[in-house]
Simulated scan of single mutants.
Amino acid sequence: MHTMGPKSYAILRHKLQQEDPNKQEPSKAKLYKNSRIRNPNKTYKTSYGKTKANMEKMEALESKENEEGASNKDPYDEVINKAEHGGRVRLYGKGVTMNKLKKVGNKSNFVFPQEFLQSI
């Protein structure tokens, strides 16, 4: 379960894209890690063991890819290999389907108002 509260994946994805020097869209692995950061001062109902293990596996795959050379497969897809439900794409939020992503070409047509972006 993500720990972002009321923030959406679109906001997190935009924030990570703005932090990137090349302004590229973040990978699913990076989005997964940033959406599950826990506050050490807060008590959670669920355990963090499985999530932490998944993150360690992703980091190991990323370091292995850096040593061997670039791979076009995202470590998230190798670690989290759950079957997709019809009409659902993980880490994109509600209402995003593969057809919508294919039509747009992985670029979001959602535009944030400038006032909102400046407040962030």
Rank of each mutant, 00 (worst) to 15 (best):
A29L: 03
R36E: 00
H2A: 15
T3C: 04
M98C: 00
T51W: 02
N106H: 14
G87R: 06
S27F: 07
G93I: 01
K57R: 11
K73D: 06
K28G: 02
H14A: 10
D77Y: 13
T46G: 13
G105S: 03
N72G: 04
T3R: 08
T51G: 02
K73I: 14
R88C: 03
M4A: 07
I11M: 09
R88Y: 12
M55C: 13
I80L: 14
Y9T: 01
T51Y: 04
S108Y: 02
L117V: 15
G86V: 13
E62Q: 09
A83D: 09
V79N: 03
V79D: 02
K103V: 12
G49A: 15
P21K: 12
N39M: 05
E56G: 06
I80M: 14
A10E: 11
L91H: 02
Q18S: 13
L117P: 01
K52Q: 15
I37Y: 07
E56Y: 07
R90F: 05
E78I: 13
Q24D: 13
S71H: 06
A29G: 08
N106G: 13
P113D: 08
N99Y: 07
G49K: 15
H85E: 14
I120T: 07
Q118W: 03
R90H: 10
S27M: 04
R36M: 06
N54Q: 14
M55F: 05
G86I: 14
K50A: 10
K30R: 14
F110H: 15
E84A: 10
E62C: 04
